[in-house]
Design a protein around this nucleic acid. Sequence first.
DNA 1: TTCCAAAATATTGTTGACAATTATCGACAG
DNA 2: CTGTCGATAATTGTCAACAATATTTTGGAA
Lengths: 237, 237
Amino acid sequence: MAAPPASSWRDEGQPPGEVDRLYLEIFDAVIDQRLRPGVKLTEAVLCDAFACSRSTVRAALAQLQHDKIVELQPNRGAFVAQPDIKETRDVFEARRMVEAAILDKLLSLPDLPDRLQQLWQMVRQERAAFERQDRVSWIRLSNAFHVQLVRLAENEVLTELMNSLCSRTSLIIALYDKPGCSACSFDEHEQILQQLSRGDRQGAQHAMRQHLQDCEERMHFADRNVPDPWTMFHRQL
Amino acid sequence: MAAPPASSWRDEGQPPGEVDRLYLEIFDAVIDQRLRPGVKLTEAVLCDAFACSRSTVRAALAQLQHDKIVELQPNRGAFVAQPDIKETRDVFEARRMVEAAILDKLLSLPDLPDRLQQLWQMVRQERAAFERQDRVSWIRLSNAFHVQLVRLAENEVLTELMNSLCSRTSLIIALYDKPGCSACSFDEHEQILQQLSRGDRQGAQHAMRQHLQDCEERMHFADRNVPDPWTMFHRQL
DNA sequence: TTCCAAAATATTGTTGACAATTATCGACAG
DNA sequence: CTGTCGATAATTGTCAACAATATTTTGGAA
């Protein structure tokens, strides 16, 4: 078995083709904020950085555009997406709806406490990453928490949806979150788990809604983290 | 203004590029059930049928794969997707969650009755299509109703999600619905609108959930509409 | 110095060709 | 007649070259 890839929370399909590999590489780079929103993704550069042909790069970029991770301007090139205020509102509203509804279903599962075990574990990892100032791991784990929670419902459609929403949230945080304060705190994750464990439907839903609300309100649209045009991309593995 | 394209319910972006055009052509063909689930989409054939290069075809197919409209098997080719029982369950469950949650939000809009006007109009068109046995238009309008309803909430993320879910539903219907009975009846659409008009939250949510439940239960997995391997694709415009 | 136009450069869009993999068909042994 | 093996054909994955478009630089005049 190969070493677990950087993002262990994404469901890994069959043997990854060349284009899939590139897709994941760029995707991870964006989510980890090594590629900041707004930077231009010149095909030749990616081509050179990942040792593949331009057709491969173009295919990967097309998929990323479809995921709203990059914006593809005709005849101008690809840029890491810069979600605006409206998109931020829409993404968080969708998350509140979906994740609250999910909790409802989870509480109907007979073996919920067992399944929550791994999530408690995950929150501990979040705390550890936070305390050792490992921002990249921490963002990744924060997303993983939400995705993993949805995954308990065993609904592929919703799981993939949450994956997409979390990715877009990462971009939003990269743009509008102050580096100092934490956008998605593990305390609140713990609270949600507690409410779930004791079977409190109202409490769990409220905790989740509040958590996402807080997350959204921590965004500062006034002075956004402007992308540095000179921050060119180079592979840093 | 150009003549309205076949699918008027999809949000049309800026000038469509070559790949977008192909994407829509194939998409519509699948939704309209001119391309049945399971048929192989050979690149050269599409290439020839739509008068474009293979790179364009490949890009379009990649996007369609991402939307779960076609399945892309490595080194084997593209096939129109054949959602299984599990996927059917997941899609309908997701729809129940999302669409019920949407109703909640719609009822908080002050000018809801005004916005519902166009939906009443749409239901009338559904009935008309049904009565003149126009199955293609009718399936299209049924989808349009649900998408348009979500669109009233003015949330791009949810609108695109519903678009995707309705597309997948079309595939499911193509596979598992008996041609005789109607999967998504306009009567039930009317009921939902009525409950919404009178501001009955419980009633509207129940009507929507029941509608989707009925829709799902009308699927027959035993004898599925097996794809005819000899049914090769040729453009029929 | 500042502004504008035009050449020069860089980047993207498209096409075609080649390599790698898979599907098909026929021969042949059991 | 059935099933397996091997060669041929068809299809996909990848790459490199060319055309079209955008960006930058250069040069000159107000």
